[in-house]
Amino acid sequence: MITARRILARSEPWVLAAIVMLSLLIQARSGQFFTGNNLVDLARALIVPGLLSIGCMMVIVSGGIDVSFTAIASLAMYVTDKILLQSGYSGNVLLAYAMSGGFGLLLGALYGFLIAFLRLPTLVVTLGTGSLYTGLMYGAFAASASDVPPSMIAHGKEILFTATNAKLGLTSEMPSQILILVGMLALAFLLLRYTMLGRGIYAIGGDEAAAERAGFNVRLIKMFLYCFVGALAGITGISRISMMAYADPSTMLGMELTVIAAVVLGGTRVTGGLGTLTGTILGIALMTILANSLILIGIPTYWSRAFTGAVIIIGTGVTARQIASATGRRRELKKTKGGGA
């Protein structure tokens, strides 16, 4: 009984319920939801925001907020792409991932330093670095849509399987990049749950001063966190342009808002300390289904942005309400305990 209550006090089951209900609604209205190709399309659309959400969730758990990870992803992948193109590189795509991840790590280290060592407010710092990185990309590298090296094109064409919708004659291909998402999720899960570093991220989000006293190296943990987020963003960038087969510098900019909203929707506490990967992926799935299915349920594309805004507001509103009522319950609990004897 206690366990049942504990599960229902979390937000994952509610997000899952929302996904199921939404799916049934779309299925009922269009009959197209539970088809192989639609599901594969959804999975495909989930890869990039899913990858980004992992880092975003970790930052929010630590008590910060990051609005510049898309700028890192864009700049890192663009510089990598340019270097590889100019050097005429035709070898393995792993080098591209390593380079872009490395650039991302450096870019993350810069604001990690500002946040960890100078203790500057994360929102304003990342607004600043976001602008800095986008500016560098468009200014110093004069970025515009460009080709990608052959290895990336080949990488983008690696298909796990193909789903066909016999009725509409549509086929959808499951890209191999989904494996990167799965791998990164597994890595993040192990990191967060089974390493002291990961527990340190939660500890800092719970009480930074206590974490310091307990013996966590708070600065190094934060530094690691932002480096990790940067590297992950760089890797995400390569996955993105490989799947698109060309490097569009603006393709990921602006995505940060939906990712943050999805992470919060998935039950990550905005003030830090609580958050799960399951919830995060469920949140991303909900947002992706919404975004991809607007046409299926008959909402014109011009209104999609207003719709996203409404979802962010309603979603965060419900989460905020949940937190408020949870604190209310807690107060009751304390009361009965105090007055019990």
Binding site: P300, R305, T308, I313
Partner: peptide, 27 residues
């Protein structure tokens, strides 16, 4: 109202309203 009555953190509430108002304007 979102911030004071529904206790949504200001960052998220106004990220949302920015999307919503721009979205309505586009719509």
């Amino acid at each position: 109202l979102l911030i004071s009555r529904f206790k949504i953190p200001a960052i998220l509430a106004t990220l949302g309203t920015q999307q919503l108002y721009t979205g309505i304007a586009i719509g």
